[in-house]
Design a protein around this nucleic acid. Structure first.
Length: 316
DNA sequence: CAAATCTTAAGAATCCGGTG
DNA sequence: CACCGGATTCTTAAGATTTG
């Protein structure tokens, strides 16, 4: 079963300095060499055929011109699920423990830092309006960014991120149901054969991952079973607390940026800018906390963990 | 601002060893 | 076995913190 995506815009893949090693340290190399490329996403499994299109729109925004490439093509909807399969308990077991003990972990794991912008804070009513992600291994097409059309949900928090309703509620901006297969394809293109993906987000457990799960669910998709979700906020808290055991640890992205004297590329609260910053912060935290890939895996959640917590809170 | 998590502290519940 | 007291664990609530 396939769906045709006639117009999917604002999907950009950036080239990123390549570097990958066994330890988490040194993932990011020469990030200043970031270079915007046109979209040339290729099929991973041969099932998807994507067609590159020329730039079709330029949106004038308060934060400067936004030029976008437009990607079109067809993507197989292999992740449509029915209610019966959704209610089955997925055999996660102790995936993290098994994976953490795997000697080939560096060859299996892809670490992707991600960030979302939304129309607001309410996880039920509000919608995602921007997604960015970056594979810390770097290389070509390692970075993903796109605006998302929230449909009939207006953007009421433009003052936070600068994204206006008229910027996203356009026919050429992809809706979430159109974007999910593209995002999945991006992740799969970064994935190692038979490998796992660690999705990192700041305050992800409370915010990003829940939004993502809700949107996937709304569009009848499910988070792939080989994804592990890591919230970087507890790492930040742990580090800040180690510096001041008596104080109350603040560990927002902004606080961590200032703590590490890091420079931001772009505006705060824009998905790609936040992703690039979090990539740097995450690397610093793993160094300071002396965390190996195995340690990080053990700190991950699965989507089912978070779904269970969401269900529990719903009851309460 | 909404909503969830985390931290902390206080109180309750449980466990355990000592004593008779 | 019954009882006591201390230590440990669990529960709950409030406040701080985070995300957009």
């Amino acid at each position: 079963m396939c769906v045709s995506i006639s117009q999917v815009s604002r999907f950009r893949i950036h080239s990123f300095g390549s570097s990958c090693c066994e330890r988490v340290h040194g993932w990011i190399k020469n990030s200043s060499s970031l270079k915007l490329l046109d979209v040339r996403a290729s099929s991973v499994d041969g099932k998807a055929r994507w067609i590159r299109r020329n730039v079709s729109t330029t949106t004038q925004g308060s934060r400067g011109n936004i030029k976008s490439s437009v990607l079109g093509g067809t993507v197989p909807l292999t992740r449509i699920i029915d209610e019966e399969s959704r209610t089955k308990v997925q055999p996660f077991g102790n995936l993290q423990q098994r994976l953490a003990q795997d000697k080939d972990l560096p060859k299996l794991l892809t670490v992707i830092v991600s960030d979302l912008e939304t129309t607001g804070l309410n996880r039920k009513r509000e919608r995602i309006i921007e997604i960015a992600a970056q594979d810390l291994a770097g290389g070509g097409y390692s970075t993903f960014q796109t605006l998302v059309n929230p449909g009939d949900v207006p953007v009421t928090n433009t003052d936070i991120h600068g994204i206006r309703t008229d910027m996203v509620c356009r026919p050429e901006v992809p809706r979430m149901e159109e974007l999910i297969p593209i995002f999945l394809q991006y992740v799969e293109s970064r994935q190692k054969p038979g490998g796992y993906v660690m999705l990192v987000a700041h305050n992800g457990k409370s915010f990003d991952f829940r939004f993502l799960i809700n949107e996937f669910n709304r569009c009848s998709y499910e988070i792939p079973h080989n994804w592990l979700l890591l919230d970087s906020l507890p790492l930040g808290r742990e580090h800040m607390k180690s510096l001041d055991p008596t104080g109350k640890p603040k560990a927002s992205l902004k606080v961590l940026q200032e703590h590490y004297s890091l420079t931001r590329e772009g505006d705060a609260h824009r998905a790609l800018s936040d992703v690039l910053l979090l990539s740097k912060v995450f690397q610093k935290l793993t160094i300071d906390l002396k965390l190996s890939l195995s340690d990080l895996v053990l700190r991950c959640h699965t989507a089912s963990d978070i779904i269970a917590v969401m269900a529990k809170n719903k009851k309460a």
